[in-house]
């Protein structure tokens, strides 16, 4: 069985968010880049668990990005991917990225494609669904559990106010979130091994972008907190009722 795990690079969760060039560019100076937590903790680790159970499983990683993405790709290889593919293209258009993934996936004839729930920078939560549509495969979004019996998967996915359990045939695209697996730390053997694992560079296929980012902005600053003395909680309730009008 072949699994393709889609991995992306995002600013560290605590990175300072600022923009430049007339608010059209994200300021990257001083930003630490990480493997997108959902891709790492849930999508990749669940794939590794499947391989541990069945050694005939191979895990390929795919990233669409520039050469500066190689560090996070090596980290993912250290955690447990067998080989990686980087499509040499920088884009903020989800459809452009999804089209690259779909092109590689078609060629590789994967049984399973895992993505994270969303990237924590552009928060599209879009790539998985687009890849599934481009490949005409079923898609289970926001999965919290994945089990495999032969060529049928049983998954839990989040719905409003709870979860549902669904069965889906392979090949299948799944977007993964909390519950799928537990975070792991790469060990020394993995890190050493990752250096020699194949990282294939591929040139992008031509795609017309469907969207572009015109500009960014920061939310208006908060006016500051209005503190109410601890011995007057009824005053807080009054403010919420009369001033904020939320209760």
């Amino acid at each position: 069985m072949k699994i393709l795990v889609c991995i992306s690079k995002t600013p560290d969760t605590t990175a300072k968010i600022a923009f430049t060039d007339n608010n059209t560019k994200f300021v990257t100076e001083g930003v630490q880049w990480i493997l997108n937590p959902y891709d790492e903790w849930y999508a990749l680790v669940r794939a590794i668990e499947l391989k541990e159970k069945d050694p005939s499983v191979t895990i390929h990683l795919i990233n669409i990005g520039g050469a500066d993405n190689d560090a996070i790709i090596r980290k993912a290889l250290a955690l447990g991917g067998d080989e990686a593919i980087r499509v040499n293209l920088e884009s903020t258009d989800s459809f452009t990225i999804a089209s690259q993934i779909a092109a590689i996936a078609k060629e590789g004839a994967y049984d399973l494609i895992f993505t994270g729930k969303e990237t924590i920078d552009y928060n599209g939560s879009s790539i998985g669904g687009m890849v599934a549509e481009l490949l005409d495969m079923p898609f289970v979004s926001l999965a919290t559990k994945f089990e495999l019996n032969g060529s049928v998967a049983t998954l839990n996915r989040e719905i409003e106010g709870g979860e549902e359990t669904v069965e889906a045939p392979l090949p299948l695209v799944v977007s993964c979130q909390k519950g799928m697996a537990e975070q792991r730390i790469p060990n020394m053997k993995g890190i050493m091994g990752a250096r020699t694992k194949p990282l294939k560079l591929v040139e992008p296929v031509a795609v017309d972008a469907l969207t572009s980012i015109a500009s960014f902005e920061l939310p208006p600053a908060k006016a500051g907190v209005k503190l109410v003395p601890a011995d007057q909680p009824e005053e807080l309730v009054r403010l919420l009722h009369e001033e904020a009008k939320v209760i």
């Binding site: 879009s126 549509e133 481009l134």
Partner: peptide, 19 residues
């Protein structure tokens, strides 16, 4: 919507604003 919007976007080649 998070499952449908992207599928529709790719199917119809329609730009999607997710969120």
């Amino acid at each position: 919507g998070k499952a449908l919007g992207p599928r529709l976007s790719a199917r119809l080649k329609a730009g999607l604003v997710a969120g």
